[in-house]
Amino acid sequence: MFSRVLKYEFAAWRRSYARFLIVIGLVFTLGCVVVALRMPIVSELALALPILAIMALPISQFVLVVVSYYRSLYGPRGYLTHTLPVPAGTLYAGKLVASMAALVVSGALMLAAIVLTTVALDLSARTAPFSTLRDALGALGRVPGLGLWIAGLGLLMLLSLFFNIISIFCAISTGSEARWQGLGIGGPVLVYVLIYVAGQLLTLGLMLTLPLGLQIDMTPVALAESGGPLSMPGLGIVSGNMLMAFWDAIREPNPLVATVGLGSFLAGPVLTAVCAWRTVRSIRCRTSLR
């Protein structure tokens, strides 16, 4: 059943996104070609096109994912979606997987587009293609730990995207229940604000109560700034009263060694799990289509 749901999610995605992608791709290609052609003034202005396309890609994809979730469940099409003999969890999982896949694909396309833009710039500057890219990768290798940091950041971004999608879906589903119905689109917005506030409170609460902390040692960075070799901050896990660490952080805004309560990292997963559970429950037994 899950594979069938996925199949139709992707079919719907293909039907609605194909034209978008073609338009963005055309704009991007046009911009890159003009940049590479080294035409006076025009080429410099044309650089705006690939940059615009690179930004439009993930933004439009994100909007599309959110809008199509709303439309397929709470617009007129919801009458079909909600009457299919598919368990709510399966339906939800299908939408989640398809949405994440679409976002990851657009992220990958964005990276590819960035690489292609540097190539176009190489061509316009009469340097060898890919030389900018090669230089950048070379710099990565020279700073110890930078590659790991970038990978970590990438993973963190992916996770926060996942959490965000789940909380937005939760806001849409919960905000479309009967109790918020009078507010129209305001229902989901209001619920999203509530989820956000709850998330902040949860983050603070867990950060202060869980006796584990992440110690960030900025000494290597400070050394690098005063002329030493390039280096990344040191990381370590410490235990202790995080309320004290928090207090220290408030008193001394820019310490060399800072400790952040690890509990704050727990807030995301906890909130996400609650949101997912609540969304499935909403789809299963609290749907009220207008």
């Binding site: 719907a12 099409r77 009458y79 009457t83 299919l84 003999p85 299963r284």
Partner: peptide, 18 residues
């Protein structure tokens, strides 16, 4: 609910197809 959905064929007063 889920059990009845496979037994009920419902045509709403709107266009439910993409």
């Amino acid at each position: 609910g889920l059990e009845t959905k496979s037994l009920v064929s419902y045509m709403p007063d709107c266009s439910f197809l993409e």
